[in-house]
């Protein structure tokens, strides 16, 4: 049974994943580019951070579903379970590091240079 590869469902899924990834990349890049060209005046720092992170996450989800076919395999879905556990570890690692180091920076702020020398 010879079905044409370029008319198959799987092929269309790849094309969809590719095109939407491209769009998300260009939007995120466009926001930052516009901000840079205008001399950092158009958007607030907070808006940029949040919006480009959202586009990165959207693109990650699109690629996991349409390129890596996540959630398409038979039960039990070990792939999905391993991924969720990993996401948990990654969140603890990254958010934990940011939290602790910000606190540390805050606690070190009132030190004189000589105190800081002794602390290291």
């Amino acid at each position: 049974m010879e079905t044409s590869m370029y008319r198959s469902r799987a092929f269309k899924a790849y094309v969809f994943g590719f095109v939407s990834s491209l769009i998300f990349t260009l939007i995120a890049w466009g926001i930052v580019r516009k901000h840079e060209m205008s001399g950092h005046l158009v958007y607030s720092h907070f808006f940029i951070r949040i919006s480009i992170l959202v586009f990165a996450l959207l693109q990650m989800i699109v690629q996991l579903v349409f390129f890596l076919h996540l959630g398409r395999e038979k039960k039990p879905r070990w792939n999905v379970q391993a991924l969720l556990a990993t996401v948990g570890i990654i969140l603890i690692l990254i958010l934990g590091s940011i939290w602790i180091m910000n606190n540390l920076n805050y606690s070190m702020m009132n030190m004189t240079p000589s105190q800081a020398d002794r602390a290291f």
Partner: peptide, 12 residues
């Protein structure tokens, strides 16, 4: 994520 965190956030 390198594109977003390193480069896009880096130029701001």
């Amino acid at each position: 994520f390198i594109f977003t965190v390193v480069y896009l956030l880096g130029v701001n």
